[in-house]
């Protein structure tokens, strides 16, 4: 028997239902074709709201296809950060529609899940670190935090790994600074400076852009050990977020008011000013 749990609630029990034999076999086929669909139970699949599905499999005839494929008995599929699982997630959600769910508001809940599945397609993916990446230390920030440089370099300087002492602004070096505090506008300005979304063949700094709506922008850069680091304005460069936690996922770390996650960029030896 394959039980599907829609991981979506914080307080209430998640809705669950059982797949038919045909549905279970179809799911097993999907997973056999793409094993990366499955995630470990401790995978980060999102915060509040839609977080994907949890599959629990018991050795019964209905789960024959799953068992024969040697797939795990308890595993995750889908969630906020797995755009590659969008179709299979939609398939699983569809199997709920004719099931008897213990919900007062099944339509609304499934609608939220559907929205979450759709939004997962907009995520570029975590740790899309390029094959050739340039990583600096995730603990020693003396290069940035010495008093001669601290207040003269900002997040964009840090992200660019370029200590210009000019409090660099996206687009300024290329003659056209950003003009609005939006992902599109600041991102386009950064692109004019040479940042791109695709990996470069030579070397890459992996960075990401976030926005405090209508107010400010901020950048993070991937350092060694999978840790993202940043420099909040004229304050010290650091490897922790506003909750003092290591930053392993800039999409879910505590970013204070910078609630809009724009996306990831790559570049190297760019000129910023």
């Amino acid at each position: 028997m394959v039980t599907v749990e829609l991981d979506i609630f914080s307080g209430r029990p998640n809705p669950r239902w059982t797949l038919s034999r045909k549905e279970a076999n179809a799911l097993a086929e999907r997973v056999r074709a793409d094993p990366s669909l499955l995630l470990p139970m401790d995978a980060d699949t999102g915060g509040l709201g839609y977080r994907g599905f949890i599959l629990t499999v018991q050795d019964t005839p209905a789960a024959e296809g799953w068992m024969r494929a040697g797939l795990p008995s308890r595993v995750r599929l889908g969630g906020r950060f797995q755009p590659g699982a969008m179709e299979s997630s939609a398939f699983l959600l569809h199997t709920a529609e004719h099931s008897r769910l213990d919900l007062r508001d099944p339509g609304e809940v499934l609608g939220v899940a559907e929205e979450g599945i759709t939004m997962s397609s907009e995520v570029q993916g975590l740790y899309a670190a390029c094959a050739t990446s340039y990583y600096t230390t995730d603990t020693d920030f003396s290069f940035w935090n010495a008093s001669a440089y601290l207040t003269y370099n900002n997040c964009y300087n840090y992200a660019s790994n370029s200590r210009t002492n000019t409090f660099a602004q996206p687009g300024r070096a290329s003659g056209s600074m950003y003009s609005a505090m939006t992902c599109a506008n600041v991102g386009a300005a950064a692109t004019r400076d040479g940042w791109q979304t695709a990996c470069r063949a030579d070397n890459n700094l992996n960075v990401c852009l976030v926005i405090w709506p209508n107010t400010d922008y901020h950048w993070y850069r991937l350092a060694v050990n999978g840790h993202w680091c940043h420099k909040p304005g004229q304050t010290a460069a650091r490897n922790y977020d506003n909750s003092l936690n290591w930053i392993t996922n800039p999409e879910t770390c505590d970013r204070g008011g910078y609630t809009t996650f724009c996306g990831y960029y790559r570049g190297f030896n760019l000129t910023v000013s």
């Binding site: 003269y152 790994n161 200590r163």
Partner: peptide, 19 residues
């Protein structure tokens, strides 16, 4: 030129302009 010395990490250079 609006030159401001800085550099990249692993190759520090002193600042050229003071606030």
């Amino acid at each position: 030129w609006g030159c401001a010395a800085g550099g990249t990490q692993d190759a520090p250079t002193p600042a050229r302009s003071e606030r």
